[in-house]
Each structure stands twice: as C-alpha cells, then as structure tokens.
Design a protein around this nucleic acid. Structure first.
Lengths: 126, 126
DNA sequence: AACATAACTTACTTTTAGGTAAGTAATGTA
DNA sequence: TACATTACTTACCTAAAAGTAAGTTATGTT
C-alpha cells in the first residue's frame, strides 16, 4: 500500500467529490428501487430542504450518476433515475453501510447511544 | 434493497460520521504503513493546517480509529497509529479508491481534466 | 540570553455548505 | 377569480467547517 499512496488517495477523493456531502448518500440509498420523484424523495429523506434536494440532484445528474426525466405535464412531473454508471456506486455504498452497521452494533454493545446517525428533521415535514 | 432502506442509510451515515469530511480519508490513506508523526503527516498531506490536522486526529482517536502515543521528550514526540478496529475501514477505503480510480479514467477518456481531486496546497509548505 | 524544536492550545476570522423565504410557470378545480 | 398543484429559480441568510495567527511548554544548542 505504501507505494500506491497517491493514487489510493486520489481515488478516494474522486469518489468523495461525487458522493460526499450531507445528503447525497441518503438520496442514493433511496434511488435503488427505480425512478423516483422529488416530492417522494423529500418524504423519505426527512429534513432535506427543497432547494438543497434540487442542488444535490443536479450535481448527481452533472456527474452522470442519475438522469432527469421531464414529463411535460401540469403540474410538472419530474423523475430521477440512477444511471447504469450510477449503479456502480453500489459497491461503495454497501461497503460503507456494512462498516457503519458494524460500528452501530459496536457502540450499542458498549452501551453508548448512537446519535448523529440521522439528520434531525424539523421543518419541511411535508 | 427496498426493505432495508433505513438501516442501509444508517450504516452509510455512521461511516460518514467517522471518516467523512475533507481530510480524514487522506489522513487514513497515509496511516496504513505504520505509526506516523504529525509533522510527517503535514508533509504528505499538503495543504492541511496544523490545527485542522490536530482536530481530525483527535476525532479519529475519539472514534477509536487511531491511537495516540506520547513519548515524554523535549521537543515533544507524538505518534499516531491505526488501531485494529481502524484497519477494518480499509474495505471502505479500497472500495472508494477503486471506484474513484475508475471514474478518473472515465473522465480522462472523455478528454476532461480531472480537477478537484486534490486539495490545493498553498501555505504551510512545511 | 536568545533561539530552535514539536505538538500543541486559544482566540479569532474566513469560507462554504446548507437553509429560508418568496416568487414563477401553466393548468385544473372550487 | 381565487387557489391548489409540482418543481423549480432567485436572492438572501446562517451555522458549521476550515483556516490563520499568536501564544505555550521544556529543554538543548549557539
């Protein structure tokens, strides 16, 4: 590992550039089951503000992780869907989820309360 | 995956709570080869400020990812070392590194310059 | 006696990610 | 004709993260 330090780092950083931040991992967790509308995402990702959700979705779209489908209807109808490329992120999400689950168990075994795990949701209750 | 949404999320969030942020992944990338002193970390992680490095190391220590060894000498001598538990994070780092490397190749194949990959280093040149 | 050293701590200031609020579009319903 | 709907956009504001700068410690070297 000592010889490959730099590329090791760069890969990690490139990944964080795409799926880092407070909301992107949560959003991606809810996009595996198929196309989803922003309103539904707001419902299942409690606490996210409409603006930030839009921002994050646009960035994921720009990075080709998700696709935006617009249906020309009134009221507007938009769906976001993970791309084929986006699905390759699953390995990372699964590795993170798995380690995190283990950590949660660890903390619970030590009698510690596991906070900080889910962003508070107050406001934007729907 | 649809039924396990929430725990999937929580695992990811628990992981991000420990190794998220701008510097922690980089720091961890440089700690696989054995104990390392803060001054050396400042050298290999260009751009990090002394205070932020200290902050990040303390958090990693609090989360039992690394250990702090103090040698009572003058001038002070401190070493940080990954714990056994900390080493379990490697799977995550490797998954992220691997995905990120692939992404870098993808971008290069499309003729795009890969920026944002490494924090700028100006100031604290040593 | 002044200076260097390593690893801090304290007390700020700056940056940036995230949050709030108000407005827009186009149409259907009360 | 007023209001509701969805998915925004624009403009502004706040809080958390990161950065800067100036001590502090105890000893050894010049």
């Amino acid at each position: 590992m000592a010889e490959k330090q730099e590329s090791y780092q760069n890969g990690v950083l490139a990944t964080l550039a795409v799926m880092g931040g407070k909301w992107k991992p949560l959003i991606l967790c809810h996009m595996g089951a198929g196309p989803i509308r922003p309103a539904e995402l707001r419902r299942v990702v409690p606490g996210i503000s409409p603006k930030v959700l839009t921002d994050q979705l646009r960035e994921l779209e720009r990075d080709e992780i998700i696709e935006r489908h617009v249906y020309n209807e009134v009221p507007p109808h938009v769906e976001y869907e993970i791309t084929e490329y986006g699905h390759t992120l699953n390995k990372v999400l699964v590795a993170m989820s798995s380690w995190g689950e283990d950590r949660i168990k660890r903390l619970q075994d030590k009698g510690q309360t596991v906070d900080l795990v889910y962003p508070e949701h107050d406001g934007y209750s729907n």
